[in-house]
């Protein structure tokens, strides 16, 4: 690997870290423009002024905004994002109980989707214009254009209500057998996979078609290469970058999509924790959850960028 590549990759990482800093400011400002006083909100209308003042000091609310920001950021970085305003439990503890569930859901979905989406995307690019391609195109367009909760509810109606294959609700705790594991995850994973596969497949197809239109692919055909060889040795090596990019970008969808799915299936993940926190205006919890989601998102975008750099032959062989 050349110095140029190393420098480019390092600059991408630096940009990601800087952006994360910007995001943290945005999240902090966004959650601090709350009208009214947090201390009063916690203690309720009937609180004595002394109690309010005491809580304000405890929450550093008497400090100027930039000091509070750094206190908050320091807390986040040291793994102590404060306590929930609603039940006074440490935020770190609440998150720790939910994060593994969310990661599990994302991992299972990714394992299911990536191979399917890539295969279908490449096939539909190679057979572009065919019946298969047009059908796939119509299906993915429709799935992408439809709200996630529609797919989730349809999945429940078909698989849980009509066919009774799976339970409509899932609980990740206390899984006993593999069979149970499969049944609990099936519907949430199915719903997420539908949308994720559709996105990933569309992007893979577009990247592949771009390559298949190039002159060197025509040249390979004119050298007598059979379609299999054209795709495997000429098109694929040049599409790895764009495809890796597509995969990373699609996976970032999991973050937003998980919110709806966790609610519909009553899945105890991080996203449901966040939605509950938003409904109860539990700010420390909202801030911490949002920062986790944003970091994951930025991390995926950074991976997408780096994949693009590493797979560019002009940069690799200078």
């Amino acid at each position: 690997m050349s110095m140029v590549v190393v420098r480019l990759v390092l600059s991408r990482i630096a940009i990601a870290i800087l952006t994360l800093g910007f995001v943290s400011v945005a999240v902090f400002v966004g959650t601090e423009i709350l009208p009214g006083d947090v201390a009063e909100a916690i203690l309720g209308q009937g609180a004595t002024p002394e109690a309010v003042a005491g809580l304000r000091a405890a929450l550093h609310l008497d400090q100027p905004a930039h000091i509070r920001y750094f206190l908050w950021l320091g807390g986040l970085l040291s793994g102590d994002p404060g306590r929930s305003l609603v039940n006074n439990l440490p935020v770190a503890e609440l998150i720790a109980s939910r994060l593994p569930n969310s990661l599990m859901l994302a991992a299972v979905t990714a394992v299911v989707c990536v191979p399917i989406a890539l295969t279908l995307g490449i096939l539909s690019a190679v057979w572009r214009g065919s019946l298969f391609d047009r059908a796939a195109n119509f299906l993915t367009t429709s799935i992408v254009a439809v709200p996630e909760f529609l797919i989730a509810t349809l999945a429940v109606i078909v698989f849980a209500v009509r066919l009774r294959w799976f339970p409509a609700l899932s609980y990740a705790a206390g899984i006993i057998s593999l069979d149970q594991f499969f049944r609990l995850f099936a519907l949430p994973v199915f719903t997420l996979s539908c949308v994720l596969t559709a996105w990933m497949m569309r992007m893979t197809r577009a990247a592949m078609i771009d390559t298949l239109r190039s002159s060197y692919v025509e040249m390979a055909v004119l050298k007598g290469a059979r379609p299999m060889r054209v795709v495997l040795t000429h098109a694929l090596p040049n599409t790895i970058g764009p495809i890796a990019n597509a995969v990373a970008l699609s996976l970032s969808y999991l973050l937003g999509g998980a919110i709806i799915v966790e609610i519909v299936f009553n899945y105890p993940g991080l996203a449901r924790l966040l939605v509950d926190a938003v409904s109860t205006r539990d700010m420390p919890l909202v801030q911490a959850c949002v920062m986790i989601f944003c970091s994951a998102y930025l991390y995926l975008l950074m991976l997408a960028d780096i994949a693009g750099i590493l797979s560019n032959p002009r940069l690799r062989h200078r």
């Binding site: 952006t19 910007f22 995001v23 945005a26 999240v27 966004g30 959650t31 601090e32 423009i33 709350l34 970032s252 973050l255 937003g256 919110i259 966040l274 939605v275 926190a277 938003v278 205006r281 700010m283 909202v286 949002v290 989601f293 944003c294 998102y297 930025l298 975008l301």
Partner: peptide, 17 residues
């Protein structure tokens, strides 16, 4: 920089506030 916040997250933060 703005676009690097997922849309649902921005919405949730503002609605929370």
């Amino acid at each position: 920089a703005l676009i690097s916040i997922p849309s649902k997250m921005s919405a949730l933060v503002v609605i929370a506030a």
